[in-house]
């Protein structure tokens, strides 16, 4: 689903189950992808997807018709994702840390591993995952979802200037992290 598409067709969330079902069928795939990009976990994305639709259904009478239903869905999904991440982070704070980005150099990690595409993809994902909160989401939505800075600002409820700053910083940080593997990047 392209969020930049005209919203007139999808404007408004009816109280009827039939209308809500149509909204679900129209938005399910795009919203699932959106959440998967953020969580990098299909199961978590499914859970958040259901929670998002339930939340919207529960609060459907609060939808005043301003903006699009898709935008409302994504803002809701993003808030739920943030809540979920906060809970996960709390658990992670209590758990032994072992998932930090490895500092191994290519020379130290062995020829076979260095040449492994999976290994390099893992490094990329790790580099993105370890971005600071806010910067990671801005980067992923810009890079993978193709959203504009202003769309990201609207969904995340963040000022445009902050989104730009986070995006610049995240890109620089990922580039720095990947520099040792430059030749191996697929």
């Amino acid at each position: 689903m392209d969020l930049r598409a005209p919203v007139a067709a999808s404007r408004g969330v009816s109280n009827s189950d039939q209308d809500f079902r149509r909204l679900f069928e129209r938005e399910q795939a795009g919203l699932h992808r959106f959440l998967f990009r953020l969580t990098r976990n299909a199961s978590d994305a499914d859970d958040l997807l259901q929670e998002t639709f339930l939340t919207v259904w529960r609060k459907r009478e609060q939808f005043e018709g301003r903006g699009s239903a898709e935008g409302w869905l994504r803002r809701t999904a993003f808030r739920l994702y943030l809540n979920s991440r906060t809970r996960t982070d709390r658990r992670a704070d209590l758990a032994p840390r072992g998932d930090e980005l490895t500092t191994e150099s290519p020379a130290e990690s062995g020829l076979e591993r260095r040449e492994s595409v999976e290994f390099l993809v893992a490094k990329v994902l790790e580099a993105v995952r370890t971005l600071p909160d806010g910067a990671r989401e801005a980067f992923v939505l810009f890079r993978c979802e193709g959203l504009s800075c202003s769309e990201i600002a609207e969904i995340t409820g963040t000022p445009l200037k902050t989104v730009e700053t986070r995006l610049l910083r995240a890109t620089r940080q990922v580039a720095d992290r990947l520099r040792p593997f430059r030749r191996e990047v697929p």
């Binding site: 079902r21 679900f24 069928e25 399910q28 795939a29 699932h32 992808r33 998967f36 990009r37 299909a42 994305a45 499914d46 997807l49 259901q50 639709f53 339930l54 390099l120 993809v121 990329v124 994902l125 993105v128 992923v140 890079r143 993978c144 995006l167 610049l168 890109t171 620089r172 990922v174 580039a175 990947l178 520099r179 430059r182 990047v185 697929p186």
Partner: peptide, 29 residues
């Protein structure tokens, strides 16, 4: 940014892979 993006874009291509299909259905919801 333009300098960094050329490298980062290529390296993060994997992030844009199509995700697994959602297992959620209208019946579940």
């Amino acid at each position: 940014f333009a300098s960094d993006w050329s490298e980062v874009r290529a390296a993060t291509e994997a992030l844009s892979d199509a995700p697994p299909a959602s297992r959620m259905s209208w019946a579940t919801l």
